[in-house]
Every structure is written in structure tokens, then in C-alpha cells.
Design a protein around this nucleic acid. Structure first.
Lengths: 204, 204
DNA sequence: CGATAGTGTTTAATATATCAATCGGGCGGG
DNA sequence: CCCGCCCGATTGATATATTAAACACTATCG
């Protein structure tokens, strides 16, 4: 009953909401995008979270406001903490590609440092150097593991597939994504490709 | 029924929880401390949040897991966002005083910069210079307003009361607190007291 | 075409959170 | 001492979230 619209900030006493009046909670859409980027169905996610697909459906439609416990279980399936989820302002980091032009330079002049991924917040990365011969490939099955991954193409071109998105990156381009996103690297060109990459062990 | 203990991570399928098994959600204690530091009763907080004291009581005892909407309403009464709350790892910043000895120096040598408040995260402060004559006082009623406040005592001594805590600070000592905490400054000594202080407008 | 397996959504039943009201306790003042 | 007032905790009723099972739809396969 009381077919109200799951809003907040306009309670009986209106707790001096400093955000606008009757701001809706829009977690649902973000959770849905998050799930879709991870290539999961509602049932898969439900199984991982120890819940039912129906609940996932209702939450994604903003028809209910999940309990903190439920939300935490859902986020655990993505390897996200509540802090990480909310610190992204309900907009989980779905951006994976950063072109050479829109990397932020944190140093210039004789030494140029370009930072991949606008806001490197709590990230501690381990740097690697990879070389892909023509046809080189990380394998036909998508990789998916704990941690985060980032890198820059130094020479040649490489086809990178992350969470359904696929792009060919060239020299100067970079990438950043959560390693749980199913990903794959393929050198589809005719010359060697070098990448300076970095990844995190699951140690945080 | 089913008198289980409000745990998580040990669901039917145990969603690969990387924190230990059956980790309890301990928001309740932190919310209680937060409320007490603000000098509120459960009923006061309930009124601000548009809820009932009973619900607050249950939440603080971890007898229920509040919905995200409810938690957001509660945090709004403290001027906290979900992101801020969770980014503090469920341990809201209750530390208010920083003695001269345990301030972190972020520069030394000819120029010495000492940082008040260990982690100045999202803080943008506006600096002031205050002078308290002997007996000088911000008034008998506690101040409480939007924003954050920080400062350093330059000369003399001053009695600072914040969120129930009261201390006399001397030269080199500092303070940092959320301005919503009821606070008051009193020069109880016999000499002039100077403070370099800073505060934020409510513009973020 | 019919069967099967996949998707997201919906429904009734159940578990849980929240409300409204009460309870017992502490504290200060007649 | 008792009274009023406030506190936090508790109880039963009500609203909400979640479950379990169905539904409707799409695509694939035989």
C-alpha cells in the first residue's frame, strides 16, 4: 500500500536535507550497469551474492531500498567494498580506456609523467613490460581474477577486450580496469607490440 | 524465528568472501559513537532523520541491518554522505585534538609546514586569524553549523570544547572538527590568545 | 513447428525493518 | 520520598524487503 515512490529527504520532519528536495536513490541503475559490464545475468549475480534473482531485479528497478547487508553481499560479488562503491558517487568506474590525448600529465618538460586513469585513489600497482609478437594472444578464454590492471602501449597495436568493450589501442594509448572484468589481449597487427603494464596483487 | 545473529558472508553459496568467514556488520557501534559525540539523544537523532527512536536503538545494537535509504537519512543528520561514512572504514573521524608533537610535518628546513589532522582528505579550508582577550569567549551557547573548522594556537592558552570533549590548548597545539559538533572557545587565562584558524563554507 | 534453455519480471508468502507505544531506569527538584 | 522528565530498550502492529515459484519473452536446436 501507500504507493509512494521510494524517495528520501522529504520525511515527516525533513531532516534539513542539503541536497535538493526528494532526491531519489538511483543505485539500481548503477548496479545494473555494473552487473552487465561484468557480463553476469541476474541469476548468476544472485547465486554469487547468496540471494535470489527476484531481489536483484527489484533492487535494479529501484522498487526497494536494499539493506546494507544485502548491498554488501551484492558488491562482494564484484569485489567491491561499500566504501569503493559509494566513493564513486553511486557511479561505479566503468570507464576502461584512456586515449593518449586525455591522460593527465602530472609532470612535463624534460620528464613527462602521464597518469593513466584520472583518479588513482587507493591504487597500488606493480609495473610490468609486455611484448606481443604478431598474433600473440592471452588465450581464447577471457581472463578474470582479483586485482586491478593498467598499462600503456609503447609500440605497435593491440586489441583489448574488457567487459564486453573492445578497442584497438595504439602507441600512447592506455587502459585501466578491475581484473575481475573478463579481459583479453590480442595482437591482430603485423608488427610487434610493446606494453608497459601494471597490476595489483590481491593484497588490499 | 530463526534466531540468527545478523551475519553475512556465509550465505547459502558463500560468495567467495575475501574477508574472513561470518563477518558481522558493526555499523551500530560506530553510529552510536557518532551520535554521542554530537551530543544527541536517540530521540533527537530520530527526529532529525525522520525516523523513530526505536529504530535507532535497534540499529545501534546491530539487531537489524538498516536499508540504505534509512542509513542515508541518519547520516544526513550528521552532515555525512554514505561515501564519507564508508570511506572512514565504519570508523567516523572522532578525533578532534592534535597536540603540537603529533602533527605531521609535510615540509621542514627553512620553511616548516605542519599538517593539522592526519588525513586532510576532501577538505578545503579558509584561513582566519583570531585574537582572544582574557575572558574572551564565543558565547555561552554552543556553536553548531555547517562546515569544518581547524586552527592552531599561536600565543597564550584557550579552552576549547568540542562534542563534549574539553581541553586547554597552548602554543603549537591545534584542533580539527566538523562544525556540526557543538563547540565553544574560551580564553580562561590572563593573557591574550592568538589562533590561526580555518573553516569551510558550506559550499561542498 | 515444438522443445529447451536463457533472459528479466512479476506474484504470494515469508522474513525483516520500522513505527507507535510502552516499559524500566536514572536524575534533579519539590 | 515521590514526582516529572529524560534516557535507552523493548513489545506488538505495520510497512517493507526478500524468497520461492511462476510468468512472458527471445533465441536456438531438432
Amino acid at each position: 500500500m501507500m504507493a509512494k515512490m521510494l524517495t528520501e529527504g522529504a520525511g515527516p520532519h525533513d531532516a534539513k536535507s542539503e541536497d535538493g528536495p526528494t532526491v531519489q536513490i538511483q543505485m539500481g541503475e548503477n548496479l545494473r550497469r555494473l552487473r552487465q559490464v561484468y557480463g553476469m545475468s541476474q541469476r548468476e549475480l544472485a547465486r554469487l551474492a547468496g540471494m535470489t534473482n527476484g531481489a536483484i531485479s527489484m533492487i535494479e528497478q529501484n522498487r526497494v531500498s536494499p539493506s546494507v547487508a544485502s548491498l554488501k553481499k551484492i558488491l562482494a560479488a564484484f569485489g567491491l567494498s561499500l566504501a569503493e562503491f559509494f566513493s564513486n558517487d553511486f557511479k561505479p568506474d566503468t570507464r576502461a580506456f584512456y586515449r593518449a590525448a586525455d591522460m593527465t600529465r602530472i609532470a612535463d618538460g624534460p620528464l613527462v609523467l602521464r597518469q593513466v586513469g584520472a583518479g588513482l585513489n587507493h591504487r597500488k600497482l606493480q609495473v610490468l613490460h609486455e611484448t606481443y609478437a604478431p598474433g600473440g594472444d592471452t588465450g581464447p578464454t577471457m581472463l578474470s581474477h582479483e586485482g586491478e590492471e593498467s598499462g600503456v602501449v609503447v609500440r605497435g597495436n593491440i586489441e583489448v577486450t574488457v567487459g564486453g568493450q573492445c578497442q584497438v589501442l595504439g602507441p600512447g594509448d592506455g587502459y585501466y580496469f578491475n581484473s575481475r572484468l573478463p579481459h583479453r589481449f590480442r595482437n591482430t597487427g603485423t608488427e610487434v607490440c610493446e606494453i608497459v603494464s601494471a597490476c595489483t596483487p590481491a593484497t588490499f
